Simulated scan of single mutants.
Amino acid sequence: MRILVVGAGAVGGYFGGRMALGGADVTFLVREARAQELAEHGLVIKSPKGDATLANVKTVLSARIDAPYDLILLSCKAYDLDSAMDAFAPAVGPSTTILPLLNGMRHLDVLRGRFGQASVLGGVCLIAATLDASRAIVQMTNMHTIVFGELDGTQSARVDAIAAALRTGGFDVEAIDAIVQQMWEKWVFLATLAGSTCLFRASVGDILAAPGGQVAMRTLFDECAAVAAEHGHAMREPFAERSRAMLFAQGSPLTASMLRDIENGLRTEGDHVLGDLLARRRANQPAGAPPTLLELAYTHVKAYEARHGR
């Protein structure tokens, strides 16, 4: 199976690098500067699961794609989706499968609108990783999982084949028939974490220690979960229990990557993680409904973007 990983950043570089190290046929679609970095220094992974360096990294520029790939693994930021699609479009053929690992849900409609419904799977990744100053990939926890499946809930031969290819990387892989439900659940958790830590500019532990912090966290989680329920994806109790354990862990240093983006003056996924969820909530709310914490969190992020021109 020929696999094209779009980008070689923290997420795509980690999963693609692990697969390449395991013997999979992986090529990274990158810009020229990143291609040069990888040619000179290799793809470096620093991880509690074991450090590794992939030498002789296979890369390609968009203009030099000359044949379709079997699988496209897409892990860009949601706001880069349009440019990413333009870049990997030459790699899409009649039998190509696109596996996106983006946050939220809106990207599914965009991808299916351009490449056809049959080309796109649903997926989520569970990993905390970043690029350090030397452009090495740093995995910050032991968690490294890809969960994916057919959007219509069926089992298929292509899902089985893709699962086998992914497992060459040694990370955890789950092929499931309820991927849309899992995507909604991750969205609820992420929106709660991003909304709270960005709104209060603090970690989970700091929020919980503040007067009213636990009430605010619970309120925001309930608001996000209510949107999912209104769209037919009520939170399953095992997920809700795991989420509450992380969101209400006293002393936890946990923050969302969106807060780190704000602290570093970078662009955020506020429109895709918070704004899209809010839009879906408003669609089912009467005019003049009072503002919610979700709305305040989104306003906070948009005010930051306006001030910094993001």
Rank of each mutant, 00 (worst) to 15 (best):
S119R: 14
T292E: 02
K77G: 05
L102A: 08
P48I: 11
V124T: 15
R114C: 02
S119E: 03
A240D: 06
R2F: 04
Y14S: 00
E174S: 12
I98H: 00
I179A: 04
V159N: 04
G16W: 00
R236G: 15
T292W: 03
V6H: 02
P291N: 05
G116N: 08
E174F: 14
G17T: 06
P90Q: 06
L101E: 07
R64T: 04
A303R: 15
Q36G: 11
L294H: 08
G16L: 06
G93L: 10
R114Y: 02
L43Y: 01
Q285R: 13
L199G: 08
R310A: 12
H231K: 13
M85E: 06
A24N: 10
A229R: 15
T299R: 15
A24R: 08
D172T: 09
V273D: 03
G232A: 07
A10H: 01
M19Q: 09
L4G: 02
G170P: 05
V11Y: 04
K186T: 06
K186H: 04
M105Y: 09
T130N: 13
L71Q: 01
A306G: 13
I98Y: 02
A35M: 07
P291C: 05
F88C: 09
F189P: 00
F239H: 11
F171P: 00
T168V: 10
T255D: 04
Q139A: 07
D271S: 08
R310P: 03
A129T: 11
M140I: 08
D25R: 15
F15W: 13
T219E: 14
A8G: 07
D86Q: 11
G42W: 04
S75F: 02
A175L: 09
L61I: 07
V188A: 00
L131F: 01
G251N: 13
R218H: 12
V173C: 05
P68H: 03
L4E: 00
I146E: 01
L208I: 05
H107N: 12
T255M: 01
P100A: 11
A24Q: 11
L259Q: 01
S83V: 14
V120M: 01
K186D: 05
S243M: 12
V147T: 10
T168Y: 07
Q155K: 15
P68Y: 05
R34Y: 10
L277Y: 06
G212Q: 10
I127C: 02
N103Q: 08
N264Y: 05
V188T: 02
E305D: 12
G170K: 01
I179V: 15
P238C: 14
S134H: 15
I262W: 00
M235D: 04
D271I: 08
G22Y: 05
A39E: 10
L293S: 02
R167F: 11
P100V: 09
L247R: 09
L38Y: 00
G169I: 06
E174W: 06
V138T: 04
Q250D: 14
D82I: 00
V188N: 09
N56A: 15
G153R: 07
M143W: 10
S243H: 13
G251M: 11
L193R: 01
K77L: 07
A55Q: 15
